[in-house]
């Protein structure tokens, strides 16, 4: 296979593009030519040496980049797709040498595992699931959960991978009556999983038993909300949702994320905090990622905004570089970096 090295082009001056606490450390250019769609991180192990790698996705090519010295990257593997384009990278925590991708046009039609054969180092892909897939999430402890519809039933399926990304176990979770749109892990509770439904409810599963534990309505003011993160504290469930209808006209600013608290025993909840854009900044949520206490969002203005969820305010705004709007943002799963990308294949890595 070919080994390409990214060009370390002249990086833009830090002062002009790195507001707040963001420090540009590296850039890689995905030269495939087609539209970039996503970025992610994963661990890759060769000869007992584990390295944090970057995965980039264009419409029909997914590439694995290994680190060189001094923050440069080389492309070492590429997986090619011919019929169905890539929609998103699905990283699976706690597993080495495996990353998953969701393929489809508008909706997910396939989930594939991307591997590399250890004996001849050739790229392999394995179809994990196909059909009318609504949601997918990689979970801690090498697990992957999907929701899909057959003719009349919704299936919620969890797969568990072996440590080397190999053989897998399957388990079904009890499906709710409503279509699941997204999943979120509950931080610190490995056996709990949340789902947000099309009817504006949050459901909780016990992943060990597959039981559906509770359905909680999040209220009509949170319509079509998507859950990004949850944690349990003092018997209450705190949930970070993206704000569904942020408008610049609201008097308190433009909310992009919101924190709500729910009592899982009573299914009662209330709003705790809105995470708004600073005055003078406009834009609605396009896509985003939440990790630990930090949320990042690509806005319709083409900028990226970052919030400290504990402080409650926006801590950095990253304007477009070279007049190219940002199109995706991910927190690294292997360290404390932010990966941001443009449609033309430029990926920038910031330390935060």
């Amino acid at each position: 296979h070919s080994v390409e090295q990214n060009e370390m082009e002249d990086l833009p001056a830090c002062d002009s593009v790195n507001p707040g606490n963001l420090q540009l450390v590296s850039k890689l250019k995905n030269p495939s030519g087609s539209c970039s769609v996503d970025v992610g991180t994963m661990w890759w192990e060769t000869a007992g040496h584990k390295e944090p790698c970057i995965v980039t996705a264009c419409e029909y090519i997914v590439s694995l980049w290994k680190p060189l010295d001094t923050w440069q990257w080389k492309k070492v593997y590429s997986w090619h797709f011919t019929e169905v384009p890539v929609l998103q990278i699905v990283s699976v925590p706690d597993v080495c040498n495996l990353v998953c991708v969701a393929l489809g046009n508008l909706e997910i039609r396939e989930i594939r595992a991307l591997l590399c054969s250890s004996h001849d180092e050739s790229e392999e892909q394995l179809l994990l699931k196909s059909g009318n897939i609504k949601a997918v999430l990689g979970l801690t402890k090498r697990r992957l959960v999907t929701s899909s519809w057959t003719l009349c039933d919704q299936q919620i399926e969890m797969m568990t991978f072996a440590e080397d990304g190999g053989s897998k176990e399957k388990q079904f979770l009890m499906p709710p009556e409503e279509t699941i749109l997204t999943f979120a892990e509950v931080q610190g509770m490995q056996e709990a999983l949340l789902g947000t439904t099309i009817m504006n409810n949050i459901v909780i599963w016990n992943l060990k038993t597959g039981q559906l534990l509770k359905k909680m309505h999040v209220g009509d003011s949170y319509q079509a909300s998507v859950c990004h993160k949850a944690y349990s504290e003092m018997g209450l469930l705190f949930v970070v949702l993206r704000h569904p209808c942020a408008k610049g006209s609201e008097s308190f600013g433009s909310p992009v994320f919101q924190l709500i608290v729910m009592n899982p025993k009573t299914a009662l909840g209330m709003g705790v905090m809105l995470y708004c854009l600073p005055h003078g900044q406009a834009g609605r949520f396009l896509e985003g990622d939440v990790k630990d206490n930090f949320a990042a969002a690509v806005l319709t203005s083409g900028k990226i905004a970052i919030w400290d969820l504990l402080l409650g305010h926006c801590t950095a705004i990253l304007p477009p570089i070279s007049d190219q709007n940002w199109s995706f943002v991910k927190w690294s799963g292997t360290d404390s970096h932010l990966l941001v990308g443009q449609k033309d294949g430029n990926i920038f890595i910031y330390h935060y």
Binding site: L213, M234, G235, L268
Partner: peptide
């Protein structure tokens, strides 16, 4: 709104809901 509006709180909500829910 206050914490009281959320009703009785249990630190063991996950275990309790698991024992109450259908298998």
């Amino acid at each position: 709104c206050s914490k009281a509006d959320l009703g009785p709180i249990s630190l063991n909500w996950f275990e309790e809901l698991s024992s109450e829910a259908p298998p």
